[in-house]
């Protein structure tokens, strides 16, 4: 029997809104230790992994592992119907066939909303994603997620040249990180320097650079990650010309969300 319950409806709303932009379906795996979600986009250049430990839920009961593929757009639609203070219960019975029930309970309105989702896709074995080693990356940038969102917003408002998928070039050099996008009639560049000030010790921008690196990414992937990054105060970006970039935000001590994004080849 599976029956996790949580009150962080806004949290799941944000996750699903961010993910459903890019990924059609996701593989959900509930185990005794918590929830692991994985998805890969249709062009197979971006992958997302979300881990939410059992302690993140207000109540967590899962006496045997359960894997399911679910459609993210449908889930995002259902969550849009929920109030931010609803209590969510996820339920799959022992003799579960191919559906899972999400119940949204509004204590204030005395209203209960129920959605059954059919399993989609293979529901099978999760992807084999190795634990990434920071030491393998040429540069690691840590910055407040609000700052990262601001940069993505500027780039996406400017960088749509109309005739092809907008891209962003991220370069790390001399303890600074530069984001560059080309628009219809010009270019937009944001340069962030390393900062760690006494008055804002919790909001530093830290740049660890072994060697200079410059990579091209589709802006749509960055935008999706920037939406997901609202889950955390800080984002970490691992860059290498040999490996998929890893964009990560840690969710307190309760888990993380990671995007693995393969850069374009010049």
């Amino acid at each position: 029997m599976l029956e996790p319950r949580l009150v962080q409806t806004t949290f799941f709303k944000n996750v699903l809104e961010a993910l459903s932009d890019l990924f059609i379906e996701a593989h959900f795996e509930f185990s005794r230790t918590g929830l692991e979600l994985q998805a890969i986009d249709t062009s197979r250049v971006a992958l997302v992994a979300l881990v939410l430990r059992a302690e993140a839920f207000n109540h967590y009961l899962c006496d045997r592992g359960l894997s399911m593929g679910l459609n993210l757009a449908d889930m995002a639609k259902a969550f849009r119907c929920a109030n931010n203070d609803d209590i969510i219960t996820i339920k799959a019975e022992e003799d579960w066939t191919d559906t899972v029930t999400f119940t949204f309970e509004s204590p204030e309105d005395g209203e209960i909303l129920e959605f059954d989702f059919d399993f989609v896709g293979s529901n099978g074995v999760p992807l084999e994603i190795p634990e990434y080693q920071e030491s393998e990356y040429q540069a690691i940038v840590r910055m407040p997620s609000a700052k990262f969102m601001r940069i993505c917003k500027k780039l996406s408002s400017f960088g749509d040249s109309g005739d092809r998928d907008p891209v962003v070039i991220i370069s790390v050099y001399k303890e600074r990180v530069r984001s560059f996008a080309r628009g219809k009639t010009g270019t937009s560049t944001t340069v962030c320097l390393q900062t760690q000030t006494v008055d804002k010790p919790k909001e530093p921008t830290l740049i660890e650079m072994k060697e200079e690196v410059s990579l091209i990414f589709d802006l749509k992937y960055m935008n999706s990650f920037s939406k997901a990054s609202t889950l955390s105060d800080q984002v970490t970006i691992n860059l290498s010309s040999e490996l998929p970039a890893v964009f990560e935000c840690k969710i307190a001590e309760l888990g993380y969300i990671r995007y693995y994004i393969s850069p374009r080849k010049e």
Binding site: R44, E128, I129, P130, R164, Y260, S262, R264, K265, E266
Partner: peptide
């Protein structure tokens, strides 16, 4: 732009 590298190049999938 040249084709983006696909994740299969890095990780093994079914």
């Amino acid at each position: 732009w040249k084709t983006q590298l696909r994740m299969e190049a890095f990780y093994s999938f079914n």
